[in-house]
């Protein structure tokens, strides 16, 4: 943990109508690190992502990205700072083609007037082609995204995430509903991405987490239960009790 801190959550709590979804959660991520977050249903994994990306405002605690407090910012501002998010349920713009989806995701123009006046540049064209290659969607570039398979949508969404060129990627259950082969390919893709960017992955699939071969944080009832390598963590009796043991 000598690398500079990229993301730091300190003592974060949030309550929904009396239910404590996140309870004094603290988590630190170094620049360039990839981290897997595991935990049973209701452990607060998705809510944690909601807090980082500005969808949910915490009741207390602080979230710092490059030392800047995120809790006062809204989603677009946080996204523009370089935090990208992939949802549990793949969310792409179904009425648009794959290419148009990727084009919209490209970092750069964000104001409505600049988008209105935008014309496709050669550079943007090249970036989209590169993303199509990387996500193996080149053959489907002009297909409507709504007609793609579940796995293809997952990949398209990851492609869009890369188009944003974020420093930190938050990936929520990327391999849910994928075949084993697709799962392993996704693990490779994430490791590839991790070379240049930091990644937080939420996942249930232990084979996938093992394949990623990264540090694991176990969440339980809204706070951190254990942290470390997968083998260490899965040997922890408390973890076995709340999660793996069941």
């Amino acid at each position: 943990m000598n690398a500079p801190k990229l993301l730091e959550m300190r003592d974060v709590s949030v309550t929904f109508d009396g239910f404590r979804a996140i309870n004094g959660l603290s988590l630190t991520l170094a620049a360039g690190e990839m981290r897997a977050i595991v935990g049973p249903n209701g452990a607060g994994k998705t809510t944690m992502m909601d807090i980082i990306t500005g969808k949910t405002r915490p009741d207390s605690g602080s979230v710092r990205f490059h030392g800047q407090d995120l809790t006062r910012l809204d989603e677009p501002a946080i996204a523009r700072m370089g935090i990208g998010r992939k949802f549990q349920k793949p969310t792409v713009f179904e009425a648009l083609s794959v290419r148009e989806n990727l084009l919209l995701s490209l970092s750069g123009l964000r104001g409505p007037f600049s988008v209105l006046m935008a014309r496709l540049s050669g550079k943007e064209q090249a970036r989209v082609d590169h993303l199509l290659d990387m996500t193996r969607l080149g053959d489907f570039a002009d297909h409507q995204a709504g007609g793609m398979s579940h796995g293809q949508k997952q990949w398209l969404e990851i492609g869009m995430l890369l188009g944003q060129e974020p420093e930190l990627l938050l990936v929520d259950e990327p391999v849910a509903g994928m075949t084993d082969a697709e799962t392993m390919a996704t693990a490779d893709l994430l490791r590839e991405i991790n070379r240049t960017r930091s990644v937080v992955v939420v996942e249930h699939d232990m084979d996938f987490v093992r394949a990623l071969d990264v540090g694991v944080t176990v969440l339980h009832e809204g706070s951190v239960l254990a942290e470390g390598a997968l083998d260490t963590v899965s040997a922890d009796p408390r973890v076995i009790e709340v999660y793996l043991g069941r």
């Binding site: 989603e75 677009p76 996204a79 523009r80 969310t91 792409v92 919209l104 964000r110 869009m160």
Partner: peptide, 8 residues
């Protein structure tokens, strides 16, 4: 989704 891409 557009919000998380940085659009308003």
């Amino acid at each position: 989704r557009t919000r998380f891409l940085g659009y308003r």
